[in-house]
Design a binder for these strands. Sequence first.
DNA 1: GCCGTGACCGGCG
DNA 2: ACGCCGGCCACGG
Length: 103
Amino acid sequence: MPHPVGFVEAVLAVVADIPAGRVATYGDIAALLGSRGARAVGQVMARYGSDVPWWRVVRAGGRPPAGHAERAREHYAAEGTPLHPTDDVDGYRIDLASARWRP
DNA sequence: GCCGTGACCGGCG
DNA sequence: ACGCCGGCCACGG
């Protein structure tokens, strides 16, 4: 069974439910909606995600949303989201093992 | 209704 | 621990 209501609405609703200091992956969101379209979730976030806690949606590898590492980092610091320093361009990676949220 | 486009994912070399 | 490649899937033109 696909999404009962609008996909966009559903995605934003889930993101709004993620508690501060915790995160969910694009794939997690999709799965919660009975979809495998992680990219589709990315599309939604890119277009309509500005009004929700978008930084709480990360990639499966624990890396922040592409192109938003800087701004996301500030939120993580404020919320005490467990990070892990790296040498890549992002400079850090979210510790999914302890921060991943599951309803 | 087909086609290109991603704030993606997992497997494989 | 890479990077590449193919598969996904909803959206807008």
